[in-house]
């Protein structure tokens, strides 16, 4: 499969259904790149004509804005909007809830209005429309716990789409104590990802992974590249990386699709 950029798609005269917004993590972080490839493969399997911005994509500006650097946020946001408007982008799907939130809620005020979906919402739609069929029983009777990212969950109110996907796998969802509206942060948001935590007694990701471990689930499903990093680090701190896996919901779906 070849993932095309908008420029390439335009040159070929392709009618792009949806722009896959990859984000910095999905583009550069080795773990998140796997999720980008997974999701691209799923889009391909569903026969979706999609494209990425490729080198024309820039950081959405979310971490800059939340660190207080409005100037840098505007610099990124306005250029991204200019690029997307140039291509006449209407629909966007992204594997990062931070990108999702910023493009969906903050770009309209700056002149960029699009229909934005998180990839778990998009995958749900594809399954509902019958464009993707989950048939494998890879995760049947497997205990899976699901971590609500703040930016998809509490901030944008999407708790069900990822859970529905996990149910499609016939896996058993074992919920943690703090879920949905009361979900506990992984510790990365608000630009914490790029700084050492302030002095305290414990790391936030350790607090969260302990809660996940209490469920005895063998898989911690997540929907955000930063949560995946934080929770994986938490597992390592607990020396449980060989027993429990942190996976993106899309990775579970791909493994359950018959070739």
């Amino acid at each position: 499969m070849k993932v095309k950029t908008m420029a390439e798609a335009q040159a070929e005269g392709l009618d792009v259904e949806v722009l896959f917004w990859v984000g910095c993590a999905g583009s550069f972080d080795a773990r998140a790149q796997k999720v980008s490839r997974t999701f691209a493969t799923l889009l391909d399997k569903a026969g979706i004509t999609f494209a990425i911005l490729g080198n024309e994509e820039m950081c959405t500006g979310d971490p800059a804005r939340r660190a207080g650097n409005e100037f840098l946020f505007q610099l990124m946001a306005l250029q991204n909007i200019d690029t997307m408007n140039k291509y006449g982008v209407k629909k966007i799907v992204t594997t990062c809830p931070h990108c999702f939130n910023t493009i969906k809620n903050e770009y309209p005020e700056l002149g960029g209005s699009y229909e934005v979906m998180h990839h778990t919402q998009f995958l749900n739609k594809l399954i509902e429309e019958g464009r993707l069929k989950v048939e494998g029983e890879t995760f049947k009777n497997t205990n899976v716990t699901y971590h609500d990212s703040c930016y998809l969950g509490r901030i944008n109110g999407e708790y069900e789409a990822p859970r529905k996907l996990i149910q499609e796998l016939k896996a058993d969802i074992v919920e943690m104590k703090r879920v949905k509206k009361n979900g506990l942060c992984c510790g990365a948001g608000g630009a914490q990802m790029w700084k050492e935590e302030e002095a305290g007694e414990k790391r936030v990701n350790v607090e969260r992974i302990e809660e996940a471990l209490e469920t005895n689930a063998s898989i911690v499903a997540a929907n955000c590249p930063y949560c995946i990093t934080m929770l994986s680090d938490g597992l390592k701190a607990k020396d449980k990386q060989d027993v429990v896996k942190v996976m993106d919901v899309s990775e579970l779906i791909l493994q359950s699709i018959k070739e």
Binding site: S27, F28, D29, I52, N55, E57, C59, A64, L72, Q79
Partner: peptide, 22 residues
């Protein structure tokens, strides 16, 4: 992080292209 965003449009300073993952 700020410098990297300002100079490269990405949160990390990377030597590879943004679209290399594909």
């Amino acid at each position: 992080m700020f410098n990297s965003i300002e100079n490269n449009g990405a949160v990390w300073q990377m030597s590879v292209e943004r679209e290399a993952w594909r």
